[in-house]
Design a protein around this nucleic acid. Structure first.
Length: 224
DNA sequence: TCTTGATCATTC
DNA sequence: GAATGATCAAGA
């Protein structure tokens, strides 16, 4: 673990210094072994970059860089720079939806400031061959936040009515909700239609790949 | 080909 | 069990 950056500028500067490295090179510097594939190490890339940048020890309900209020997200992209996957945001709080407002929601907090690090990750590339890209320190524009809030409010409306189990990944223009658990049979307490708590499948918020693609594209437009 | 729903490892 | 980090893999 490297020393934690004390300013956003230092963090960004350090992240820029990693651009162009292969993950194998980065892992070598950190004395971390490289898995042959990510099937059993799905969080390996994210943890590697956290380690390289000196993210705080994983503490619940706090950004990766707690003092800076910055969340770190790696973003697998193809050769054209488009995200290959959606981006995990946070778990959905299903039990007491009436007590949650957008202004203080976990989603808004998590996405307040995000350091996106694209990683060139064609499926044909082994984990070690993948390349760290130029980082992007993002804060939602008013328009982006409006999109996020609108989706979030829609999801919350459904959840408050006790129909969280009926939400599918097709709901939400930029912010979707998908199952998230150890297995499909995982269950957590959530509000049911009767107003009582019942056991339902745990879920999480994800940013659609199209949304993160726009974020990347906008930063590219600004930097050229 | 793209997305959705499912799954994996680790920590506390 | 819940939250962290995500990608896999089957079906549309």
């Amino acid at each position: 673990m490297r020393r934690t950056p004390t300013t956003p500028t230092e963090l960004l500067s350090r992240a820029r210094g990693l651009a162009g490295l292969t993950l194998a090179e980065l892992a070598g510097e950190l004395s971390v072994s490289v898995p042959a594939n990510l099937r059993r190490d799905k969080g390996w890339v994210g943890r590697l970059l956290e380690d390289a940048l000196g993210a705080d020890a994983s503490t619940a309900q706090a950004p990766d860089f707690a003092e800076l209020g910055i969340e770190l997200k790696t973003l697998p992209v193809d050769a054209t720079g488009k995200p290959r996957e959606s981006t995990f945001v946070t778990c959905v709080e299903l039990a007491h939806p009436d007590e949650i407002r957008w202004e203080t929601s976990h989603v808004r907090q998590k996405l307040a400031r995000v350091l996106f690090i694209p990683v060139l990750s064609e499926t044909s590339m082994s984990p070690g061959e993948r390349l760290v890209g130029q980082p992007l320190l993002w804060q939602p524009t008013p328009a982006e936040e409006a999109l996020l809030q609108a989706d979030w409010e829609g999801h919350m409306r459904t959840i408050r009515q006790g129909y969280a189990h009926a939400i599918t990944a097709r709901d939400g223009r930029v912010l979707q909700i998908r199952p998230k658990g150890a297995r499909a049979s995982s269950r957590v307490w959530g509000l049911g239609p009767s107003g009582d708590l019942e056991l339902i499948q745990p879920r999480a918020y994800y940013l659609r790949a199209g949304f993160t693609a726009q974020i990347i594209a906008r930063s590219f437009a600004l930097s050229t």
